[in-house]
Design a binder for these strands. Structure first.
Lengths: 129, 129
DNA sequence: GATAAGGCCTCCAGTAACTGGAAGGTCAAG
DNA sequence: CTTGACCTTCCAGTTACTGGAGGCCTTATC
């Protein structure tokens, strides 16, 4: 398979796949013409990466998860720790965003949104203190 | 005021304040020795920016909001549009994160997290299809 | 007057994870 | 033999800072 094929089949852009090779997540073979030649195993890894990224894992998390995936002697505790830490970060992020959402919702609701200059949003942002 | 004073009073790091000047959000005066000299008005702008950033507005949003803030003839509709668009992005982000949270919570709960290699998390990431 | 501490300056590299584009080689079809 | 679709590498740009090097300025102390 060429890069276009694995891009189609993994759902990842070709440039992203090149990037993953550059940072050492995958190591596809090369044809005589210099084209990357992807085996089924490479595609499988890319699909793994695509799913892990879709769950919001960082690239370094993905690197660790991939290593564990390929290690038959891994302890599931190691995997779970990565996932739990990531879950905590997501929960923290959600809490931050919800606080913003609450404030913004109030402000947007309070703003007339017409041609007049008076605006509770700006008043809040510019308040003293 | 020197930069250290406004940093303390606005809660923004000095480097961030320098950055805001570099991208044209503020334009403090300069003393003969080259030090930035901040007026109360500069501090007020920085506090405005700090609050807008804390609500998650992008720098470009902040630039637009600041311009509206200083324009007596603004229409509150323009402010509201920026805030509403931002709110929508936040809501979308929350939805994404909650989807991740749901999946991750399931996977983490299903994983024994012990010394054995068997792991539902990796099984999910590596599934075919 | 020398010195040391602390604040300020500019410039630059690095962060995360790509994305898009330029310049150019390769391949299959007509 | 040319056209067009792929592929290659390399590089700049994205967001919003952060940290550090190297060096000047100020103030206090000895």
């Amino acid at each position: 398979m060429n890069i276009g094929d694995v891009a189609d089949r993994s759902g990842l852009p070709a440039n992203t796949i090149r990037y993953y090779e550059e940072i050492g997540l995958i190591s596809p073979a090369r044809d005589n013409n210099g084209y990357r030649r992807f085996a089924e195993q490479d595609l499988h890894k890319l699909a793994f990466l695509a799913r892990a990224r879709a769950l919001g894992f960082t690239i370094e998390d993905c690197r660790a998860l991939l290593a564990l995936y390929e290690d038959d002697t891994r302890a599931s505790a190691d995997v779970k720790r990565i996932a739990r830490d990531h879950l905590r970060r997501i929960e923290a992020k959600i809490a931050d965003l919800r606080a913003m959402q609450d404030t913004l919702t109030e402000l947007v609701d309070a703003c007339a949104g017409d041609a007049r200059p008076d605006c509770p949003i700006l008043r809040d942002l510019g308040r003293e203190g």
